[in-house]
Design a binder for these strands. Structure first.
Lengths: 136, 136, 136, 136
DNA sequence: GTGGTCTAGACCACC
DNA sequence: GTGGTCTAGACCACC
């Protein structure tokens, strides 16, 4: 009830950003998988469909899907499409890696502002207790 | 040694992003002030200089500077330029607001991955102890 | 009976005046609010409507409305329009500031003519007693 | 020492204003006379000179000077120019009429804001006592 | 229709 | 050179 069909891809790519477009798309799909918005066996959008939706070249989507397949997150059934493959261990590892990456970015930024670990942890506790149910 | 003249503005704007260009620039400058990269009395880039550097219209920069002036972060001396104005109280308040905003975004994202407060705090502690000196 | 819909804006801007156009419009609206011709919740003319009426660029009206919004006199509901927001304290303060400004201009001018405080006060008393009901 | 040559005419006419241009110029000169910036026998600017300075048609200046002559404020010496003529009684009367006009405008405006006579007189006293020496 | 963002560029006063 | 005002107009989301 929470999600419509693949609304996790409601994002726009930034063609001018430092991080390349294929990486942006890859991260978005990986995040959807690791956060359970995409489940075992779910069919991904077709190459054409996704490339049109994101307004980018189909070859870029091919690159994304190939790498995700190499990484073991999805598999292809020629003629049918790409599907999510959930390896429990891999997902768990992936989640922790993502946590670390997000934490790194977050800590870097707030450290620049001069906050100590105590400040940061206080801010997090405040946030997590006030936000019993958060908007999506 | 860490900063060249105003290299804190080494970022690119994303004209297609959900957050408007003027807001992106405003945040970047505010962050530079709150993180002490811009100090009391420092001269900002001129309207034309910054608009050329960021490849956006001078009027957009005017909007940014005007709003920052309204918010009390900078002041203008017509014919001379815009300069940083540091109000200790305002800076302190601004820092905490920014901490809260960053924390909100961070917590939202990692909560989506299913991590608990304990997981998050552990990740932060790990990061802050390993990163005695962090890259910028 | 005294006012038609928003006839308080029956004025013309002077594009060559020392005081900029946006300031003239801003003052007129502020005066309408402070003098109760515009009441809490009243809808202002739309950006396009007012810009056509006053024969000035919509962007100038945007500037006016944005500044009035910053000053807390009005608020915007995108897609609906701009509306008057009355903060009793702000209105009271605003009225006294305006009184001081008008008094300054008036006193400056008549002082140039050589009139003393007694002359001025006599003139005012005469005016206020004869003008039981004044034309608008 | 206070005035350079006829700097009392440092004003610009507003061709779009409700009050006609010739009336604006007439008032400015009358004010200069009544406020002693122009003294008995002072030579006014020539028709050509003033029309160029104010960027208006020489015929308009002719109209102004003729009316001022009719009103007894100035006189012409053909071939020499126009000169100020001070009739003590006329000046005195003119000053009081001007005081009344200014007072009318002032009182009208601040009354709209809801101020009482007591408020107004208090504001004037405050202004006149604080402004021991005012800027011109 | 409404507000809001942004561009491109003219013109001004002041330095 | 600097900030500041203003125009003309495109394009967007939301109603």
């Amino acid at each position: 009830m929470k999600n419509k069909k693949q609304n996790f891809l409601d994002f726009t790519v930034d063609v001018k950003a430092a991080v390349p477009v294929y990486e942006q798309v890859k991260r978005a799909i990986k995040f959807a998988i690791l956060s359970d918005h995409l489940k075992e066996g779910d069919k991904l959008m077709s190459l054409r469909e996704l490339s049109m939706k994101l307004q980018i070249n189909p070859n870029t989507i091919i690159k994304v899907y190939s790498q995700l397949e190499n990484d073991g997150y999805i598999y292809s059934r020629p003629g049918a499409g790409y599907f999510v493959k959930l390896d429990k261990e891999k997902v768990k590892t992936g989640k922790y890696r993502l946590l670390d990456e997000e934490t790194f970015e977050y800590v870097s930024k707030v450290s620049e502002l001069g906050f100590s670990m105590a400040d940061i942890i206080a801010a997090i506790k405040k946030r997590m207790t006030t936000a019993t149910h958060k908007e999506s």
